[in-house]
Nucleic acid binder design. Structure first.
Lengths: 255, 255
DNA sequence: CGCCTATTTGATCTGATTCAAACAATGTGG
DNA sequence: CCACATTGTTTGAATCAGATCAAATAGGCG
């Protein structure tokens, strides 16, 4: 259902370009790398919102490249409280870890209708055999994800709701900018306040009040799934945001 | 100061054995792997308690293998609040990431007097060239660390202080057992309550009260830097602990 | 229009912080 | 071996950030 033919033909397909663009945001690739990446067999699929891609206990034989939309990783408490661990944007391979960790230990799901491409583990291993230097590239990507988790821990553990929200928004804006998915100081952010709260470890009600505070302070505006930063420096200060941990190859000029 | 000669001779040195033991807790090695690992040049050093090994902004050319003692990674808020991100036990290479992320983005320090061994990045790359399958082993280790971060986020974001403490203690006991550093249901845990609080994102005072609650419920006893689990099943229930995320090669029988 | 989901507001409650101080343990130098 | 300093643990009381409960309001959308 909703699947399409493997897009293994055009090495310059938009799907491959999405991946290349992401990798080039964190590392320098040469032409041979790009060419080899362009031959990765992809199976594209469209998924509805709120659909799990992999779940705890799964043992997938493929990874998932997000092409369009928005996804998140999450865990839940036995009493049903959800904690979102990371947001994933187009170009990300959120479950790259499954290459070396057979059993998935968290959940990955879409937040909005999304287009994804599946890449067989075998295809990645073939790629690594052909271009051994790409191992370091993908490894680096997983390490940057880990760095984001560490910042997330600091955020949830030691900042108040206002600061947490500011930091999260800074991170999202920076990441979307780094892969060319921001429109000036605006980004698409089609998430509910309940989802933001689950990411920040706070209640929906308090999420709402924290957002209102950010708005009242003239830092951002957020409505209709679209976020606009009104005062980047102020937002950075509020969230104590330092993008170093994102290890971008080309740090953005002012954000 | 306090350094020793590279221990590159005896492939079966206790230092190398520590590393091998750790890796074998998460993966199966063959004899050739062990032999090659045994030839890794190590530079052993003894460090006092509360000594930073690497700091944000550093660009080390080596990794650090913890041999004896206890270390932690941490970040701090601008107003000085510290958040501990992970504890590291003998056998761990806490800053393995520096192999692919030039600039360190968090801090790593000892909690007690510790013995560490430094491994030059070049030596690791040589090892990977000789035994390419070890790339996956070390990559896997970094991925497991990331899985621990994810659980840490859930812990700090969605559990109350009592549950957080229980979960943390379960994790530490399980990890120490997996590398043969537990004595039955007792482990060395030479950390202050302030440090535990920094790991859990709670104040020292509340850390104390949470520990008292765990004691009162007959789950653990903790004094003089030594933790004894009195009721493993109860502790697991209190912390909702499921060790899957540690991806141990040989899950422990009952803990 | 009516249904369903999301946002917003108000009021109340509580887990955890903060402040302050007592107490215990360990170590140091004389 | 004791006086003293230092660090860690414990207790109590006041306070607060954020949770919870409840309900109103505002948007989509078939």
């Amino acid at each position: 259902m909703l699947s399409r033919e493997p897009a293994r033909s055009a090495e310059g397909s938009p799907e491959h370009a999405r991946l290349v663009r992401k990798l080039e945001s964190i590392v320098d690739l040469d032409e041979a790398d790009r060419e080899a990446l362009g031959r990765l067999p992809l199976t594209v699929r469209v998924l509805p919102a709120d659909t799990d891609i992999v779940r705890q206990g799964d043992r997938p034989s493929q990874c998932c490249l997000l092409l369009e939309g928005l996804a998140c990783r999450y865990l839940t408490t036995e009493e049903g409280k959800r904690q979102i661990l990371s947001f994933h944007i187009p170009g990300d391979i959120p479950d790259l870890q499954s290459l070396h960790l057979k059993e998935i230990d968290d959940n990955l799901g879409t937040l909005v209708p999304s287009r994804v491409a599946f890449i067989a583990h075998g295809a990645l291993l073939d790629l690594f055999r052909e271009r051994p230097n790409l191992v370091g590239v993908f490894w680096r990507d997983t390490l940057i994800t880990a760095a984001m988790f560490r910042r997330w821990i600091l955020n949830v553990g030691r900042r108040d709701a206002y600061g947490r929200m500011a930091h999260l928004l800074c991170e999202l804006v920076t990441r979307l900018k780094s892969v060319g998915l921001a429109d000036g100081w605006s980004i698409e952010l089609p998430v509910t306040q309940a989802e933001l709260g689950d990411a920040l470890g706070i209640s929906t009600v308090h999420t709402n009040r924290s957002l209102q505070a950010l708005r009242a302070d003239g830092l951002v505006s957020l409505r209709g799934g679209s976020l606009t930063v009104k005062d980047w420096d102020g937002l950075v200060r509020a969230g104590e945001f330092d993008p170093t941990y994102l290890h971008l190859a080309r740090p953005l000029r002012s954000g």
